[in-house]
């Protein structure tokens, strides 16, 4: 019985983590779905978000959840600048999707190098009251920071979904995602929508970075990767064009990781993560880029 509840505790923690995966994947999914371009620097924007939290909290002593708003705005601007430099000039050219892969890869390398230069490779973390306070519900213990991150993830996903469905710009974003040519015909400023989408996607990544930083003790220039891979798995697993799918996929993947920890040794669990990732990638590519071979 003790064992059982320990497992339950573990699985719930991983489910909460999975919910946060949903949030880290949200911006990626949005950009991917609308522009058919993968933002290769997504994890690095997360990382910049984490540092935003670290610096605002340690330098100015503000509340990390206010830092989340700061990061949202800051990263939104950074995203739009990135878009102007790296996406818009190539996205409509022939081979544009391959080109965005390369340009965002360039941005990724630049952001990582800058972070290394400015902030050194050593991992950082900051103390905050949310991380050290625990709540207990039905015998399951979790830190307030993680609980809040989970709740904010769900709220953010619902908010983005509603934004896309109800707000004018959101509707325009959906139109561009479904039919860019048609969208242009009905008078939507497609480049502007792309700019806003990219900005929003990166802003969400920045916010996610802050939320992750409230409980994740390992803020460093390459921290993006851990969350990056998880985000990609979630997006691919969920499929494109679904916003709610992201949260479910996130939780499923979180729980799977938890199960992996219980059943396998830790070293082997890591191997398993990549095996599962490759399997998902290979078995679920439909509805994504490489539709079917037989289409003339």
């Amino acid at each position: 019985m003790v064992e059982f509840s320990a497992y339950t505790q573990l699985l719930v923690s991983y489910a909460i983590l999975g919910g946060v995966y949903g949030l880290t994947a949200l911006g990626l999914s949005l950009i991917w779905g609308v522009m058919k371009a993968v933002n290769w620097a997504h994890g690095d924007f997360l990382m910049v978000g984490m540092y935003t939290a670290f610096w605002t909290v340690t330098l100015f002593g503000i509340d990390p959840y206010i830092a989340a708003i700061v990061a949202f705005i800051l990263l939104g601007l950074l995203g739009m600048v990135t878009h102007v430099i790296a996406i818009e000039p190539v996205v409509e050219k022939p081979g544009g999707h391959e080109a965005t892969l390369l340009t965002t890869l360039g941005i990724s390398v630049i952001l990582e190098s800058l972070a290394l230069i400015l902030w050194s490779p050593s991992p950082r973390s900051f103390q905050n009251v949310y991380k050290s306070t625990y709540i207990e519900v039905f015998g399951i213990r979790t830190s307030v920071a993680e609980a809040i991150a989970f709740v904010v993830s769900i709220v953010a996903i619902v908010a983005v979904d509603q934004f896309l469905k109800r707000v004018r710009i959101g509707k325009a974003i959906r139109a561009v995602s479904q039919n860019p040519v048609g969208a242009r015909v009905v008078g939507i400023d497609v480049p502007k929508i792309r700019l806003m989408t990219f900005g929003l996607g990166v802003a969400l990544a920045g916010m996610a970075g802050v939320l992750v930083a409230t409980f994740y003790p390992n803020i460093r220039p390459l921290a993006g990767y851990v969350w990056d891979i998880a985000s990609y798995v979630v997006v691919i697993f969920a499929g494109l064009g679904t916003i709610y799918g992201v949260i479910f996929a996130g939780i499923i993947i979180g729980v799977t990781e938890g199960l992996g920890t219980i059943v396998f040794s830790n070293a082997f669990r890591q191997i398993l993560v990549y095996v599962v990732f490759l399997a998902v990638l290979l078995l679920r590519p439909q509805g994504l880029f490489g539709k079917a071979l037989r289409r003339v």
């Binding site: 891979i229 191997i271 990638l281 590519p285």
Partner: peptide, 28 residues
């Protein structure tokens, strides 16, 4: 073989995961 199913960024992602897997296996 993976490239038969994975295009563009999906292939790139798959190869990243493949390399990580190789690294972990070398450690294991």
């Amino acid at each position: 073989f993976a490239s038969l199913r994975l295009r563009g960024p999906f292939f790139a992602l798959g190869t990243i995961a493949f390399a990580e897997l190789v690294k972990l296996l070398l450690l294991y």
